[in-house]
């Protein structure tokens, strides 16, 4: 055994290093383009309902998590749309809901959707705050909306995910 170790030391070190990296995190790296924009105002984007408490999250807080740019088509609108926003996973991590089975998003018009765990772990699920660089307003289906990047992750293009393009997000809660 020792003679084997002595013989191919270099190969051994390399494979150990790779194992270490694997062990550290199954943190998939998605090739999303990062973006940077000037700081947004301190407006409330949505509330997080956690343990009976309602925690407001502001746009500034959100955009601090790291903006990414996504170009995708939408099942509800025409043409190629460019969105900038944060990874939904980062958002959930920051509020401590990342390890839940699912979360529930409520919209202003009483629309509710349950987002399962695999949606934010499988692919680069985006919580968009800007469209074409412009901050989303209520009239433009803001202040935040959930975007499934169909071009970056074509596996998202299934009928069951079509209703999950929730906009006018009002509340985020751990949900079943």
């Amino acid at each position: 055994m020792l003679s084997l170790v002595k013989k191919c030391r270099f190969m051994l070190m390399r494979s150990l290093l790779m194992l270490a990296f694997l062990a550290i995190g199954a943190m998939p790296v998605w090739a999303l383009e990062p973006a940077s924009f000037p700081e947004p105002p301190e407006t409330v984007a949505f509330n997080v309902q956690k343990d009976g408490k309602s925690i407001p999250i502001t746009l500034r807080q959100l955009e601090k998590l790291g903006l990414y740019k996504v170009v995708t088509t939408s099942p509800f609108e025409n043409g190629q749309l460019t969105f900038q926003g944060v990874l939904f996973r980062d958002v959930l991590k920051s509020v401590g809901l990342e390890d839940r089975d699912s979360v529930t998003l409520r919209a202003v018009d009483e629309y509710v959707q349950v987002i399962p765990h695999e949606d934010w772990t499988e692919g680069p699920l985006l919580l968009a705050t800007r469209q074409d660089g412009e901050l989303l307003t209520r009239r433009t289906q803001g202040p935040t909306r959930l975007i499934y990047p169909l071009k970056d992750h074509p596996a998202f293009d299934t009928p069951i995910r079509k209703p999950r393009w929730i906009w006018l997000i009002k509340t985020l809660e751990s949900g079943n």
């Binding site: 509800f76 609108e77 025409n78 202003v108 018009d109 209520r138 009239r139 433009t140 289906q141 906009w167 006018l168």
Partner: peptide
């Protein structure tokens, strides 16, 4: 009123 109007705008104007 503004919120309702925005909703209708989104529904008829923006969504295809």
């Amino acid at each position: 009123l503004s919120a309702a109007n925005d909703l209708v705008y989104i529904r008829f104007g923006r969504i295809d």
